[in-house]
Amino acid sequence: MKNWQEDLLRIVTVAPGEQRVFDEIVAAARELGFEYCSYGLRIPFPVSNPKIHTLFEYPRAWAKRYQQAGYVETDPTVLHGRRSRKPIVWSDELFASTPQLWQEAQSFGLRIGWAQSCVDGNGCVGMLSLSRSSEAISANELKVNEPRMQWLVSIAHQALTQKLAPRILDVEKIQLTDRETEVLKWTADGKTACDIGQILTISVDTVNYHLRNIIAKLNVTNKTAAVVKALVLGLLN
C-alpha cells in the first residue's frame, strides 16, 4: 500500500507544464481540507530584476484584484515567508497592518489559512498558501496534517522550480555515497536519526553527519527537502 509521501510524490511525475503540476498540488490541498491554494516563486535572476511567478486557485476576481493592487508587496504572509521558513497560521493579528487586504480576502472567502516558504541553495524562494472559507485550523489538525502540508511545500518547490527555472538547476554533478543513500532512504520512510542509527548500527552523530553532507550536496536547507529533491532526481531508485 502506498503511503502519503509516495502519493504526494506523484506530483513530480505529471506531464510537462507548471499548470498541470499546480493542478496536482491543488488536488492534494483539497484532500487536506483546503478549498484554495496559491504558490509564489521568486527566482533571483537577473539580480537587477528578480522574476516572480504566481499560480492561484482562488476566486478569479480575487486573484485579479490581488495582482492589480500589488498586494504581494505588503502581504504579511509573504513578508513572513521571506524572513522565516516556519509555517504560519493566518490570524487577525497577522493582518493587523493590512486591514484592507484582509477585509477584501475575507470577502472572497479566504478567511482561514496556513502558509510556509521554502528556499533552495540557488536562492529561489517559494511559498505555498492553503486556505478555506470556514472552520478554524485546530491544534489537532496541525498535529495530524502539518507533516503532509510541509511535504507538499517541499514537493511544490522542487516540482515548480524544475518547470519554471530549469536552467539554474545544476543536477548532473550530484552524487550520493551508498551510505548517504541508505540514510536518506530511511529518512524518506519517516525514520528519525536515532531509528536509523539502530537500523544501520551506527551512532546518531554519524547519521546526522551524513544528513548534513546530503543537505549540502543537494543544495537544500533541511532533510525533508533533501528527500524530495533526491526522489525527484531519481537518486533513491
Score class of each variant (00 low, 15 high):
Met1Phe: 12
Asn3Arg: 03
Asn3Thr: 02
Gln5Lys: 12
Asp7Trp: 13
Asp7Asn: 12
Leu9Pro: 13
Leu9Phe: 15
Arg10Lys: 13
Ile11Thr: 05
Val12Ser: 06
Thr13Arg: 10
Val14His: 00
Gly17Ile: 04
Arg20Lys: 04
Phe22Met: 04
Asp23Glu: 12
Glu24Cys: 13
Glu24Thr: 12
Val26Trp: 08
Ala28Thr: 08
Ala29Ile: 06
Ala29Tyr: 07
Arg30Cys: 01
Glu31Arg: 12
Glu35Tyr: 08
Cys37His: 11
Tyr39Phe: 12
Gly40Trp: 11
Gly40Cys: 05
Arg42Val: 09
Ile43Asn: 09
Pro44Trp: 09
Val47Tyr: 15
Ser48Pro: 07
Asn49Glu: 09
His53Trp: 04
His53Lys: 08
Arg60Asn: 06
Ala61Phe: 15
Ala63Trp: 11
Arg65Phe: 01
Tyr66Pro: 02
Ala69Phe: 05
Gly70Pro: 00
Val72Trp: 14
Thr77Trp: 02
Leu79Ser: 03
Arg85Met: 07
Arg85Gly: 06
Ile88Tyr: 02
Trp90Phe: 03
Ser91Thr: 07
Ser91Asp: 01
Glu93Met: 07
Phe95Met: 01
Ser97Gly: 13
Thr98His: 05
Thr98Pro: 09
Leu101Arg: 06
Trp102Met: 02
Glu104Gly: 00
Ala105Gly: 08
Ser107Asn: 05
Leu110Cys: 07
Arg111Lys: 10
Arg111Ala: 02
Gly113Thr: 01
Ala115Val: 00
Ser117Tyr: 06
Ser117Lys: 06
Cys118Asn: 08
Gly121Lys: 08
Asn122Cys: 08
Asn122Ile: 13
Gly123Asp: 13
Gly126Asn: 07
Leu128Ala: 00
Ser129Thr: 04
Leu130Lys: 07
Leu130Phe: 06
Leu130Arg: 04
Ser131Trp: 00
Arg132Ser: 08
Glu135Cys: 01
Glu135Phe: 06
Glu135Val: 03
Ala136Asp: 13
Ile137Tyr: 07
Ser138Thr: 15
Asn140Thr: 05
Asn145Lys: 11
Glu146Gln: 06
Pro147Thr: 01
Arg148Tyr: 12
Met149Asp: 01
Val153Arg: 05
Ser154Ala: 14
His157Asp: 04
His157Met: 04
Ala159Val: 09
Leu160Pro: 03
Leu160Val: 02
Thr161Ala: 08
Ala165Pro: 04
Ile168Cys: 06
Leu169Trp: 03
Asp170Ala: 06
Glu172Pro: 05
Leu176Glu: 04
Leu176Cys: 02
Thr177Gly: 02
Arg179Gln: 10
Arg179Phe: 11
Thr181Lys: 15
Glu182Ile: 14
Lys185Ala: 15
Trp186Phe: 12
Trp186Met: 09
Gly190Cys: 02
Thr192Lys: 10
Thr192Tyr: 10
Ala193Tyr: 05
Cys194Leu: 14
Cys194Ala: 14
Asp195His: 14
Asp195Gly: 06
Gly197Lys: 09
Ile199Pro: 14
Ile202Ala: 13
Val204Trp: 01
Asp205Ile: 12
Thr206Arg: 13
Val207Cys: 14
Tyr209Leu: 10
Ala216Ile: 14
Ala216Phe: 14
Lys223Cys: 07
Lys223Pro: 04
Thr224Asn: 10
Val227Phe: 05
Val227Cys: 15
Leu233His: 10
Leu235Lys: 15
Leu236Met: 15
Asn237Phe: 12
